[in-house]
């Protein structure tokens, strides 16, 4: 039975690993040179590990089924030294050198200068994203999404507002922690158009599981358009429902935590909602941005995302709630 399991195990290995090749959050589904380099390293290591495992198990099986007379190799210390000492040292030396060359490749002097910088702060439990101008001043602030121009090197400054978080977009790069008191910088270069999911990778309390974001790579012209739109203030509502929604937003204290540029709402505690309708998700990757999800979120965010810092607003009902959600959805 044991041998049978081993065999199946060995057969299952490559198939199962192949399946992992896909998925919006798989590091093996590479969208950048860096992620691709790591993916190649991974595949080579998987293959080598598979071979070594099979060899060791085969050897153990052969040893256990050895004929009555002792195989001569077994009794010699030299053999143990060769297989257990010399072989690993040779293999590991090669692997170490290769791994180090990948480690060193990312941040050397050869890489192009960054096109621009983005400051990302991890907060319990969402991502505050601020695009910075050449002088380091904030251009605009958004939440839970990054957009990048294809092929340009962007540097992301990672900080934390409370506890340790970790910024991880598997499709583009390895993770880097966000630690209070530290600024860590992660260079990102998206190699092709696409959208990748990222998620907090360091346990950060309560709703750690519900702290995701998206990164979208756009062709340069599209990206420029997006930047310009983001920098603009919120559009004036063009219908009665929208105006009612905005009035409710401003009258109910929402502006204490949220900013909507172009209105008196200028809170900085929660996400900037100036263009919330244009973001793919609300609640840090929790739900798609739609009128219905916005309404559900406003009434009782803690039900959707336990321990969330936003208080519930059961005061909004019926028409009021619809108007508020409609206005927020219109902020594209």
């Amino acid at each position: 039975m044991r041998r049978h399991t081993f065999t199946r195990f060995a057969e299952a290995l490559p198939a199962a690993v192949l399946a992992a090749c896909s998925g919006p959050q798989s590091p093996l589904d590479a969208g950048s040179d860096e992620a691709a380099g790591i993916a190649i390293l991974s595949w080579v290591m998987f293959a080598a590990a598979g071979l070594i495992l099979v060899a060791v198990l085969a050897l153990a099986a052969a040893a256990a089924r050895a004929p009555a007379e002792q195989p001569r190799w077994a009794t010699r210390e030299g053999w143990v030294v060769a297989a257990g000492l010399v072989f690993p040292i040779v293999m590991l030396s090669a692997l170490l050198a290769w791994g180090l060359s990948i480690t060193g490749g990312g941040g050397g002097a050869s890489s192009p200068p960054a096109a621009f910088r983005i400051a990302v702060a991890g907060e319990q439990w969402w991502w505050r994203v601020t695009y910075l101008g050449p002088d380091g001043s904030a251009l605009f602030s958004t939440a839970n999404e990054l957009r990048l121009p294809i092929g340009q090197r962007v540097e992301v400054d990672l900080t934390s507002a409370d506890v340790i978080h970790s910024f991880w977009v598997p499709g583009l790069a390895g993770k880097l922690d966000m630690i209070p008191g530290h600024v860590n910088t992660l260079p990102l270069v998206a190699g092709r158009a696409g959208t990748w999911r990222g998620q907090c990778a360091e346990y950060c309390g309560g709703a750690h599981a519900l702290m995701a974001f998206t990164v979208t790579a756009l062709p340069a012209p599209d990206f420029e358009r997006w930047m310009a739109a983001q920098a603009a203030p919120a559009a004036e509502p063009d219908n009665a429902e929208g105006r009612r929604g905005r009035a409710l937003f401003l009258a109910s204290g929402c502006g204490a935590c949220h900013a909507v540029r172009g209105t008196p709402a200028s809170g900085t505690i929660g996400p900037d909602l100036t263009h919330v309708g244009g973001r793919p998700t609300i609640g840090a990757g929790l739900l798609p941005t739609q009128r219905g999800t916005l309404a559900a979120w406003i009434v009782d965010p803690g039900h959707l995302k336990p321990e969330v810092r936003m208080p519930p607003f059961p005061v909004f009902r019926g028409e009021d709630l619809r108007a508020l959600a409609a206005w927020l959805e219109s902020l594209r």
Binding site: A161, G253, G255, A256, C257, G267, T268, I269, R309
Partner: peptide, 11 residues
Amino acid sequence: PERGIPACVTC
């Protein structure tokens, strides 16, 4: 704001 306490004047 760093501690999540908003301005009183908003409301």
